[in-house]
Amino acid sequence: MDWFKRKQEGIFTTTKSAMPDGLWQKCENCGEVIFAKAIENSLATCEKCNFHFRTDAKGYINFWLDENSFEEFNQNLKSTDHLGFVDAKGSYKTKLTETIKKSGVNEAVRTGKGKISSREVIFVAMDFNFMAASMGSVVGEKISRAIDEATKLKIPLIVVCASGGARMHEGALSLMQMAKTSAKLARFSQKGGFYIAILTNPTTGGVSASFAMLGDIILAEPKALIGFAGPRVIKQTIGKDLPDGFQTSEFLLEHGFVDRIVHRKEMKNEIKTLIELLT
């Protein structure tokens, strides 16, 4: 055995080549430089390798809902710093103000009523731009109210899931949102409601261990990271490298936790057909 082992083949530079803003974008996966308009037309996926770019709630609303059909709920709900949480970078309160300013949205989820091929649905989409789509009180409350609305109107519920983990700044209040949203879904289900969960990159932590895994049908975008514990934590715990493709959409499909993997461009049609078949 060698005394020294090269960790990675080839030579890597740490600085990425600068790309002029706007017109062109480089695919994070295959490196192909693509005309921005082309990416937009392919719903933020790479035409060459089918890589799915990370997208915010607004993106999903535009991709999958009928044009101008989205009526947003509870935009005025805002997080408060109930614990008075201060970390290395300062207070949660300041972080919230800054994030609202930077992201242009009030919280990490958007909820509302919309139409998919003329069928009314309640549509919920997480916003990764906002504190990595972590779930705090407002995310839990907005999703709960959206589920109540779906229960009341007896229409399907579609939730586009994404989350980098818990909103630690809200302590146990963040944790309890898992129970809150799951309780609402349990009642929705008892009343015959139809719920499709769509998992996108990444869906981890508390969101994965609550509403993301509770869909009557669970769909996933290709190659999304999906799991309860983050890969870094698992690696630290077991002290071993993780197998290739671990915790990807494809891995979950193979292990029986996802119904279908669907390309972003096919998703609208997929949802429409499933609603037609089951309701």
């Binding site: 129970a179 799951s182 994965s208 609550s210 993301a212 895994m213 799991g227 309860f228 891995f251 292990h255």
Partner: peptide
């Protein structure tokens, strides 16, 4: 734990 669906198992219990 991940292969056997830790997230699903917890979610299902809450539900």
């Amino acid at each position: 734990a991940e292969e056997r669906g830790q997230a699903e198992a917890i979610a299902k219990n809450l539900f």
